[in-house]
Amino acid sequence: MAGYQEEVNMKKSVLLGAMAFAGLAAGAASAGTLDDVKARGKLNCGVTVGLVGFAAPNANGEWEGFDVAVCRAVAAAVLGDSTAVEFVPTTGKTRFTALASGEIDMLARNTTWTFSRDVDLKFEFTGVNYYDGQGFMVPKDLGVSSAKELDGATVCIQTGTTTELNLADFFRSNNISYEPVPIETNAEAQQQYLAGACDVYTTDASGLAATRATFDDPGAHVLLPEIISKEPLGPLVRHGDNEWGDVVRWTLNALVSAEELGITSANLSEMSAGTENPEINRLLGSEGTLGEMLGLDATWAQKAIASQGNYGEIFAKNIGEDTPVGLARGLNAQWTEGGLLYAPPFR
């Protein structure tokens, strides 16, 4: 919990720094995260401790995944280097403390945007990078075809998540009983589920698909048709630092807009030189001063897109239908394609 203390008006002291609650209090509310990140030359980005497709270290120990790509894009936009990211693995329980204490600059950890997290926990969600919902996974041979048949089942659930609350509400409102088995990380849940210590594993449907992809025999497990909640997942930052919030928000929007406008990593350099479309020009910095307004240089969006490609490319590479995770775009298609992705205009 030792917070990264950037409080200027506060005298630093090794003794006090060691005290956890001082750290908790001191790092909070520090304005100027953008300046801090620039000065440090590194972005501290909170991710999950390991969920294939969203954030997990690969064979070379490099983090990759859908959420990781957001961190890298922000690092590229701010620092011009998509590798200048310190990934901080967080669990469902530790993530908010890590962000509130200033240990991380932003959290990209399939975190659901809810009222109380936004308002009461004092965070700022900077958009949605994945529209999700809570689902259930069961072994095929259990013969269950609907979540309403799960009366009396033992359910593995990651603790400290919205899914925990949804689950309680779902079973309550359907007047059926269950036995919750609270679990700290996805890996432990997988172990218990595969050993049959729980009948059902529930989390966001995307997480279930990603987990199932790592099983020896993914075909032996089915996702039940019920989606019991809305889980808009997105990156978030601390409340009260609007400049930094804007940087993260518009980096995400840049990735989404890039897909909508047809900017890909393949044609990026060609388009950066200038096109007929003024919105592309404004986004990529050949026209207007959008970068300057954000406190970044003019080519910030170019760099962000160059790091991992546009939203569609990131999706396809990490969790798309050609990957083991195999998620369809569904709600996460562009609004022009019948999905919900709708980036505000760059103007």
Partner: peptide
């Protein structure tokens, strides 16, 4: 996953309410 006082008050309750201190 044993729900002791650290798991309830210091775990889920803390996480859901954001009242760390």
């Amino acid at each position: 996953g044993y729900m002791d006082i650290t798991g309830t008050l210091g775990g889920i309750t803390m996480n859901q309410t954001g009242r760390e201190l």
